[in-house]
């Protein structure tokens, strides 16, 4: 597995743009088109904001983001935090067919992560949550 970039910053919203710049630069260097780059950024933002909001429950902690290229030419984005055990995939998806008064405000982020990537995996390793976004190069 070929590591393209790695960044470790406090898990705070003010670092979002810095992390996103790194992710989109990797995607650009791998030759993804602008539309796919926006989709990758979006999946990344949703996963990160979830960690900023819930992982450390008011305490401080870091988030590490590693971009890799695997043997099958897939972009692998690993997002690692040391917060509360959490599985993104356990969050209930919103019903996208109901009308506005019944439509729930939450849950959209996780739904978008799943829709915009080719695979999402969550695992707990020791004290760490490791979320992996997998994007095929097509």
């Amino acid at each position: 597995m070929n590591v393209l970039s790695t960044i470790k910053v406090p898990a705070k919203l003010e670092y979002l743009h810095r992390i996103m710049d790194g992710i989109s630069q990797c995607a650009r260097e791998l030759g993804f088109d602008q539309k796919r780059i926006s989709e990758i950024e979006l999946a990344g933002e949703e996963a990160l904001v979830n960690i900023f909001n819930y992982a450390y429950q008011g305490n401080v902690g870091d988030v590490e983001v590693i971009c890799k290229l695997d043997r099958n030419e897939r972009l692998i984005i690993e997002i690692i935090d040391s917060g509360t055990p959490f599985n993104l995939l356990s969050i209930e998806e919103p019903d996208t067919t109901v009308d506005i008064s019944e439509r729930r405000i939450g849950g959209l982020g996780v739904f978008l992560v799943k829709k915009l990537t080719d695979d999402v995996q969550c695992r707990r390793e020791g004290e760490k949550n490791i979320l992996t976004l997998i994007i095929n190069k097509k």
């Binding site: 926006s38 950024e41 933002e45 949703e46 904001v49 506005i100 439509r103 959209l108 982020g109 978008l112």
Partner: peptide, 12 residues
């Protein structure tokens, strides 16, 4: 050019 769920939530 770009909207995430934060934008969608606020619109809703």
């Amino acid at each position: 050019d770009y909207i995430s769920s934060a934008g969608l939530r606020s619109i809703l």
